[in-house]
Design a protein around this nucleic acid. Structure first.
Lengths: 198, 198
DNA sequence: TCCATTTTCTAGCAGTGCTAGGTACGAGAG
DNA sequence: CTCTCGTACCTAGCACTGCTAGAAAATGGA
């Protein structure tokens, strides 16, 4: 009996952990959806708790605080971004076209999902890139950039070139929102930038 | 007597307006200093009021809300930035060196005064650039960029080139903070970027 | 000295992130 | 089937935020 009880115990524990992981995902998804629908200001712990149909303290049994939730959304966003960058890059054989497709995919991602992009690049600060604790999702996105940039690097250091191009795209993406760049010249800016790097 | 009274009235009104303008400036300066010392999270209406030695509602007799104060700090920041850009640009005769000096001044400004830079480019959204309500301070900063970029534009449209280079510098400045770029490669990134635009 | 107006402050509202306390539920033992 | 007991959960509340209505005080003019 005791052995049966123990086996049952384990399976119960497994079920609980499964339910926990499920609810974890539910919270992150709800936060992302709420942010994308109404902006991050609308993502309060109360509204989030209401949305997942639990009380506020449940959030704190999964995440250390609100920032940790935003961070989880950001990491999820990096998975999504990496996928899009890879699809764009591998769809072309010519290095120039592949790089252009990657740039288009990047700025398109930032433009169509501004709240998610903010979580990834504007809001959070404790998601560093170059250190040993950098999440693999960030490394993967960097890897896509590196793969697209290396063929056109020429004499330049590919890693530095990645940083330069990524920054340039990031700058265009963020300044474009907020009305700081002429909206109808988006293509012209990408043409001009990439024309100098191909 | 009534004429004397009226003259006095006017001078009193002028004194009051002078005092009001003085206090306006005091609030903006206090907000900027507090933000630069402890970050924008520390800039609460209560702390700000305490710092200028008035009660909270006084802030709202000068500004519509906290956002308006941040906005005023940003506009003041644009005056400062413009001055630095002009000094850097006009210190060199060669267009290439002038552009490089401008880029150095820009990234240096962003790095040494991150809170002010945030108010100007990251926090606020209702400071648009290309419209008719664009504050003259923003136009002036843009003008410095245009003056530095035009000589090296070649066949490219100077205005588009300004947007591309400004975005590239903005991207490097913002990603550099937050540890998303290798700190010791700052010069290499600027070299690589400007090498393609000279 | 008194009045009127303008300026300033006190007190409070609704909302925020977060947490301590008690409550209810469900698994295992008898 | 009932009784513990530990876990999971929620209610209530804290200190704080931006902002505002109404009372209080200061100021200029008769």
């Amino acid at each position: 009996m005791s052995s049966t009880a123990r086996i049952q115990s384990v399976s119960i524990q497994e079920r609980r952990e499964r339910e926990r992981a499920e609810r974890h995902r539910l919270i992150v998804d709800a936060a992302r959806e709420l942010a994308e629908a109404e902006g991050w200001d609308a993502v309060t712990t109360r509204r989030l708790a209401e949305r997942v149909e639990y009380s506020q303290p449940v959030l704190y049994s999964h995440f250390k605080g609100k920032d940790a939730i935003v961070r989880a959304v950001a990491v999820q966003g990096f998975r999504d971004l990496t996928e899009r960058l890879r699809d764009a890059r591998t769809a072309h054989r010519s290095p120039e076209k592949a790089l252009r497709a990657l740039a288009d995919a990047y700025t398109d991602f930032a433009a169509t999902r501004p709240a998610l992009y903010d979580a990834m690049f504007v809001r959070e600060v404790d998601l560093s890139f170059g250190t040993s604790e950098t999440p693999p999702e960030l490394r993967a996105a960097y890897g896509e950039f590196l793969a697209a940039v290396t063929p056109v690097a020429g004499d330049d250091d590919p890693e530095t070139l990645v940083e330069v191009l990524w920054s340039a795209l990031h700058g265009q993406a963020t300044l474009n929102r907020g009305g700081r760049l002429r909206p109808d010249h988006h293509r012209a800016r990408l043409d001009l930038l990439l024309g100098r790097f191909s």
